[in-house]
Design a protein around this nucleic acid. Structure first.
Length: 493
DNA sequence: CGCATTTGACCCGCGC
DNA sequence: GCGCGGGTCAAATGCG
């Protein structure tokens, strides 16, 4: 229809295509937008000219020209389609790379923060590799990146020099499957050294049961390493969403292996494990909120040991990235989180609905993503409390940390939408006006559709990671908050 | 028949 | 040491 659309396509093609000739074809096309309405095979398009000229030779000559032009148009059009498809593929790839990058960045940022805290307040001069201050500025971030990639090993080796981790191992981890994450890499490394039980029974790769027998080692180092890995394995991400369904579709295949009545909640808690690969250690718990049974709380634990479909990868990335952020800081309490730069002060708006809540409180560090709030609401007095009956919730937090709003939903949704670029372009995606116009929490179907949408979850990952990443960067400045200021039109009350 | 779900039993950690 | 609660196992059952 309107040439604007074609201009846009041209721009995308210009971005990726290096072929000058094809660009020139596009320009010809865009300079004559009217021709775009005709199908390439519509040869009659130019025949009207015949009525204005009586000379037969001129007629055939012009006819030939028009045919050539139409053929050129058809070529250009097919080329456009091809490049457009390639463009979409590249976008998807870029999105995946971005997700992985942000997960790494989160871990890096939190590790740096931890080092800073140690330098500032540490009285115990425990010169572990991780604790070593970053006096070696010459190595810059590459050193830090290397450090956190070696976190699992470092925790095990503590005072030892790094080591035995061969470059082959490292490269294998770095080039791991798309679903693999930092934490998973660390787990895998650990598994490589403890692939047998004391009984000598082999363990499936990536599978470390919570109640795995302790090694017979008397080494304190090993104990600490095990504690570290246990914490990492037990880090959780909890997702609250309104849904009538018994389970929210997240792209993974799950098998139910248990159900229990939890104390204080009339609704049973269901236990699922991932069955997309044998020995995948990922578990999830599903339980309805005691106060509002329309709210389904899904808690993820562990990291996949297999490639994931895009929809599942987004959620898995969120889980491991959030867990990494929580744990890499080694924050022994929620205060550690809250005092850290991970939570910018500007986001701690009392009364604003909490969408992402961090908790490092016992027993497990937990990130809670609350998708139950209406982004159009301004629930000053409707702060949605985390259910005191939900396990590993925030109930043990000090009162000032309860329901701590790290980010409100409107902002997050805004970030999600903006991070999607032109959301309407994506096939199968909810139209943007629908996203904005309807309260997300209005219907279970909407929530289910959104949360099940791979684009949404991918965007959610990007949003969360960028939030945390931005918050850290902003902390360097005088408490400025670019993310917040970018969205100040939302429910800041 | 194979796979998934159900459900009671069991294990383990924690607090008293 | 004991009880409680969370988490997991595995036999029984259901289903396609």
């Amino acid at each position: 229809m309107e040439p604007v659309d074609h201009k846009r396509v041209v721009n995308e093609m210009d971005f990726f295509a290096g072929d000058r000739s094809s660009n020139r074809h596009v320009k010809i096309e865009t300079e004559h937008p009217g021709l775009l309405q005709d199908q390439a095979g519509d040869v009659n398009t130019g025949l009207n000219l015949l009525t204005t000229n009586g000379a037969a030779s001129e007629k055939s000559s012009q006819n030939l020209k028009e045919k050539q032009r139409v053929n050129q148009l058809a070529d250009t059009r097919s080329e456009l389609e091809r490049v457009n498809a390639e463009n979409q593929r590249l976008k998807l790839t870029l999105n995946q790379v971005n997700n992985n990058y942000f997960a790494l960045q989160m871990h890096l940022v939190s590790l740096m923060q931890r080092q800073r805290n140690r330098i500032a307040g540490s009285s115990e001069a425990n010169n572990t590799k991780i604790d070593r201050p970053m006096e070696d500025k010459t190595h810059g971030e590459s050193i830090v990146a290397r450090q956190f990639m070696d976190l699992g090993q470092a925790a095990k080796a503590e005072k030892d020099e790094i080591s035995e981790s061969s470059s082959r191992d490292r490269s294998a981890e770095l080039s791991g499957s798309p679903g693999n994450t930092i934490v998973e890499s660390m787990e895998r490394r650990e598994n490589n050294s403890t692939t047998t039980t004391p009984e000598g029974l082999p363990q499936p790769p990536g599978w470390l049961p919570n109640k795995a027998p302790k090694l017979n080692s008397t080494s304190k180092d090993n104990e600490q390493a095990q504690q570290t890995m246990a914490m990492i394995r037990k880090a959780r991400v909890s997702v609250r969403a309104r849904s009538e369904a018994s389970m929210i579709s997240d792209g993974c295949q799950w098998r139910k292996y248990g159900q229990k009545m939890a104390k204080g909640n009339p609704c049973p808690r269901a236990y699922y494990r991932c069955t997309m690969a044998t020995g995948c250690p990922v578990r999830k718990q599903v339980q309805r909120c005691a106060e509002d049974t329309s709210i389904l709380v899904t808690t993820y634990e562990g990291n996949h040991n297999h490639p994931l479909p895009p929809a599942a990868m987004a959620m898995a990335s969120t889980t491991s990235a959030a867990a990494s952020t929580l744990l890499s800081g080694s924050m022994p309490s929620a205060d550690g989180i809250m005092n850290s730069s991970l939570v910018p002060k500007g986001m701690m708006l009392p009364g604003s609905p909490s969408l992402v809540t961090l908790s490092a409180s016992a027993p497990f560090p937990t990130v809670t993503l609350d998708l139950t709030h209406n982004p159009n609401q301004r629930p000053l007095n409707q702060l949605h409390p985390i259910s005191p009956h939900w396990p590993h919730n925030l109930s043990s937090l000090p009162p000032h940390l309860l329901g701590h709003p790290v980010y409100n939903q409107s902002k997050l949704l805004g970030t999600v939408l903006s991070s999607q670029g032109n959301i309407n372009e994506l096939p199968g995606h909810l139209p943007q006006n629908q996203m904005q116009g309807h309260p997300v929490a209005d219907t279970a179907a909407t929530v289910a559709a959104i949360t099940a949408d791979p684009n949404f979850t991918a965007a959610l990952v990007s949003a969360i990671t960028s939030i945390i990443g931005n918050s850290h960067r902003d902390n360097g400045g005088a408490n400025s908050n670019s993310t917040t200021s970018r969205n100040t039109t939302d429910n800041n009350t």
